[in-house]
């Protein structure tokens, strides 16, 4: 999963490797004694010798070297420097950049916003994707047409999605904003922090629902028909069958998606924030990854920006380890 960290060092660069790296990394993190004996289901799949997997990984590792490892090392170095943007003067300042960061109230409020944003985005994305996956599995006519339509937002560039939503919800000229105002809601994301936050949560989720949806549709299809049919014969309705049988059986997918959604929310929502709110009003939607960009590329405070990327990297690493170590144990992998 640290593959996605590349966005922390280099905003806007596609990480891309998360899915492919899932297995080796899981082995790395989960090499505990009880795993070896009780490997079952998906966990049983592995390579019998070491050369082939290395070759298969090589291209990905090369890309990671260029877009993740080299930038990370540079970020790590810069985090301990005070430097002129043109590189004319560089001073080593020890932990000063970090001290400054942790002293700054602005940084902590950004962390708080990020927490709220990622959780809200995760809940919204996953629940809507589940609902849609459930519904589209029960549609008989035109199922593929519905699926195509549902997948379309994924093809839209984040910046375009952001601008579009910013315009639709613009309190002066946006049609949706006018509708909301017509309903008596004093909608104004330019002044109200919560409205702005809701807007970026919506924009980020809208872009990511399709991704969740594909995985959930596939997972729901792989739920054994025989079990569903026997439940049907026992008189269980579609909702009961979904909640009692399908949902528990797709938990590995849900778990995977929760991790991916957190990584997405933390590292890949920069473009959406930039296009929708630019971190405003008054920094209310300036999430951590946006602050890395703002401090590095707009205000040219390279030391602070680098220190922030290092903090994000560490955060991502901790999050990934914690999730795989503690959450995964409760997940049923024997699908």
């Amino acid at each position: 999963m640290p593959a996605r960290n590349s966005t922390a060092a280099l905003p806007g660069t596609a990480g891309g490797g998360a899915l492919r790296l899932r297995w080796p990394l899981r082995r790395l993190f989960l090499r505990s004694a009880d795993d070896a004996q009780s490997e079952s289901g998906l966990k049983r799949a592995h390579f019998r010798e070491w050369r082939l997997p290395i070759w298969l990984l090589a291209p990905q590792l090369f890309i990671l070297l260029l877009f993740f490892f080299i930038p990370s090392v540079r970020a790590l170095i810069q985090a301990f420097q005070l430097t002129d943007p043109f590189g004319a003067t560089t001073q080593w300042v020890g932990f000063e950049n970090f001290e400054r960061l942790f002293r700054s109230g602005v940084y902590w409020s950004s962390a708080q916003v990020t927490l709220i944003f990622t959780i809200a985005q995760n809940v919204l994305t996953l629940s809507i994707a589940l609902l849609l996956a459930f519904a589209s599995n029960h549609i008989l006519r035109g199922r593929s047409a519905y699926r195509t339509v549902l997948l379309l937002p994924y093809a839209i560039a984040p910046a375009i999605a952001g601008i579009m939503l910013a315009f639709l919800f613009n309190p002066r000229v946006g049609p949706i904003a006018h509708t909301l105002q017509g309903l008596g809601l004093d909608w104004d994301p330019n002044r109200n922090s919560w409205h702005a936050l809701a807007l970026i949560v919506m924009a980020a989720s809208w872009k990511h629902i399709c991704y969740n949806y594909i995985f959930l549709v596939a997972a729901l299809l792989s739920v054994p028909q025989s079990i569903l049919e026997s439940a049907y014969l026992d008189g269980a309705g579609p909702i009961q069958r979904f909640l009692r049988i399908s949902l528990p059986m797709v938990t590995p997918t849900l778990f995977f998606l929760i991790v991916i959604n957190f990584v997405y929310g933390l590292f890949e929502t920069f473009a959406i924030v930039d296009a929708t709110t630019r971190g405003g009003p008054a920094g209310a939607t300036s999430i951590l990854v946006y602050k890395v960009y703002l401090d590095g590329f707009v205000t040219l405070d390279l030391g602070s920006s680098a220190a922030q990327s290092v903090v994000l990297m560490v955060l991502a690493l901790l999050l990934t380890i914690a999730q795989f170590r503690y959450v995964e144990r409760r997940v049923n992998y024997s699908v």
């Binding site: 601008i163 910013a166 315009f167 613009n170 309190p171 002066r172 000229v173 946006g174 104004d188 994301p189 330019n190 002044r191 296009a275 929708t276 709110t277 630019r278 405003g280 009003p281």
Partner: peptide, 24 residues
């Protein structure tokens, strides 16, 4: 001026000068 609504914020998606040139 902002809180009484006399001065408005353009916000994202439009440029402030457009709100003047459009006559709004």
């Amino acid at each position: 001026l902002v809180s009484s609504g006399v001065m408005q914020l353009a916000g994202q998606g439009i440029i402030p000068i457009q709100l003047f040139t459009s006559g709004e």
